[in-house]
Design a protein around this nucleic acid. Sequence first.
DNA 1: TTTGATAAAGATATTAAGGTCTTTTATTCT
DNA 2: AGAATAAAAGACCTTAATATCTTTATCAAA
Lengths: 151, 151
Amino acid sequence: MISKTCGYAIRGIVFLSLEQNKSTKHGILEIAEDLQIPQHFLGKILQDLVRRGIISSIKGPHGGFFVNSKTIDTPLIEVVEAIDGLGIFKKCFLGREECSSINPCPLHDEFDGCRSAIFKTFENLKISDLVKKIDIGDSYLSLNKEFATEI
Amino acid sequence: MISKTCGYAIRGIVFLSLEQNKSTKHGILEIAEDLQIPQHFLGKILQDLVRRGIISSIKGPHGGFFVNSKTIDTPLIEVVEAIDGLGIFKKCFLGREECSSINPCPLHDEFDGCRSAIFKTFENLKISDLVKKIDIGDSYLSLNKEFATEI
DNA sequence: TTTGATAAAGATATTAAGGTCTTTTATTCT
DNA sequence: AGAATAAAAGACCTTAATATCTTTATCAAA
């Protein structure tokens, strides 16, 4: 549904917003290692988010990425829009150029409800909602394969 | 969700299964032109489907692709499995290696229900169901951009 | 005011999806 | 048998997503 890149973006923002992280700056190396995401790739993604004002950054010694007043209230749809664009919610399931209720493919009606449910969820969920799930401890951000298969 | 390739596959099968098409063989050129799909690319896809027994083909003069006894009863999930594999229903929304209810990402619970609904729909829908929608006239397979924007 | 740290930016590489072109194989018709 | 036709197969091309590497700009501290 959403791209891998967009997932990385959300995880990056949530990492910075966690209770134990939100009062400090974090270098890209630290974030990337913790989340197991390629460093420079994540760097570019976070740069995009800084440009959008979703997070902030400072260069130089003791610089890094950090949350701002807007960060935790950012709805996920805003991140999705920034990275993937909203077009992903309009693509035809069968790969036709156009697909809508007035020009539907045979799968349009079947899945359109589901798709708008996903869209609404992205509209309603904020970064803070994901942070809660992690702080409470019933969800994970950064587990890698080794750890995951141990469970 | 499913790949463009997989959408092409479904559209190809449905085309062959339409009331007016199901009693004849159809060359790849005819199918591709009607559906506005690149000819040789669709050719390869249909070859896959023939190997799986979902449709049939004959070479040579008056040859072409055509439905067999199995075609119209094929559940869509079988096509999805053939082209994309079932892995697409297990990928983590945030791009982590592993994601499941015992090892969930912060979005897992939010979207898992939706995802299994999609899976079940693909299990329950058969080619014949899509054919009906088209034969009845409330759905389209092959509209191209020109026509679509006219509406 | 130089040095070191760090994000930003740019260039390049890799991979996978999607798409094209050419050759081969099977079949039919003359 | 030979020619024509059409799918099958294989090689290759293009584009977009993902990833890496290098250089530049900015800042802080010594």
